[in-house]
């Protein structure tokens, strides 16, 4: 299949199991959102998907087993946007973005064409005007957009994002998710972790709902997964669900 497929992924730190028997498949062009409480293993799962950690089980992208690929080949298939990036030295935004070309460059330095691609990607996520600024002097939300641009420059088949909407204001959250939706329509599979079930329901095709210790509560098309029972089970909250014009809205019930 074209897209990504995970089969029986397990991962533990020492004796503590963090990811338990996770399997899913995602076609090219679909968005999968991983939902779950803090500390349930969302980040760990994402790092298992791009082999930053070494999980049991396998991950296939376009029918290639990722365990057999070099880090360079893997980077041509998968882009990764971390939750937190701690800037070391004051680099220009454009240089950070163009570093997404690394797997396609080898040891040479980026050409003018690579810089053009990076500028284009920055403009696309709406931070083109920052290209010549130092990335240590922009806001956390802008930095996130720059990192997304860097992952786009990688021209990946699969894009992994660890909480792409954290640190963003209301408008930028929607903006980022809209951009991700657009990207996915070009045939890229997008996998992201998220905290807001409403945004998950609005923007994703599939949802993976995780409990503590990496146990999967439910996985499938977002409509089927985001039911009040499931969400109550994961967050331990009383929930009300509204439907309006086909979209589903989830709110905590504070009266009870």
């Amino acid at each position: 299949m074209s897209g990504i497929e995970a089969v029986d992924l397990c991962f533990s730190y020492g004796k503590m199991m963090i990811v338990r028997q996770v399997s899913f498949e995602l076609e090219a062009g679909e968005i999968l959102t991983i939902l779950g409480a803090n500390g349930c293993g969302k980040t760990t799962l994402l790092k298992c998907l791009n082999m930053l950690l070494k999980p049991e089980g396998r991950v296939m992208v376009d029918n290639l087993d990722l365990r057999t690929l070099s880090s360079r080949d893997l980077a041509m298939l998968m882009g990764y946007v971390p939750q937190i990036h701690s800037p070391g030295f004051p680099y220009r935004v454009l240089d950070v973005a163009v570093s997404g070309r690394t797997p396609r460059l080898g040891f040479s330095i980026p050409s003018k064409n690579d810089y053009d691609l990076a500028r284009e990607a920055l403009c696309r996520v709406g931070v083109g005007h920052l290209a010549d600024k130092f990335y240590t002097q922009i806001s956390g939300g802008e930095l996130k957009l720059v990192l997304i641009a860097r992952a786009l420059v990688q021209e990946p088949k699969v894009l992994l994002l660890d909480e792409p909407t954290s640190n963003l204001d209301f408008k930028n959250r929607v903006l980022v998710l809209k951009i991700l939706q657009e990207i996915s329509k070009e045939g890229i599979s997008v996998i992201m972790s998220e905290h807001d079930p409403n945004l998950a329901s609005l923007f994703s095709d599939k949802v993976l709902l995780m409990m503590n210790k990496g146990e999967i509560v439910s996985y499938g098309p977002s409509k089927e997964v985001l039911t009040s029972e499931n969400i109550m089970k994961v967050y331990g909250l009383d929930i009300e669900v509204f439907e309006k014009e086909g979209a589903r809205y989830i709110f905590p019930n504070l009266s009870g």
Binding site: L52, S71, A75, G79, G88
Partner: peptide, 15 residues
């Protein structure tokens, strides 16, 4: 330069 992005990011960029 890419290494100075941090270990995990450098690895996800193919290093």
């Amino acid at each position: 330069f890419v290494l100075s992005m941090g270990d995990e990011e450098a690895r996800s960029l193919g290093i």
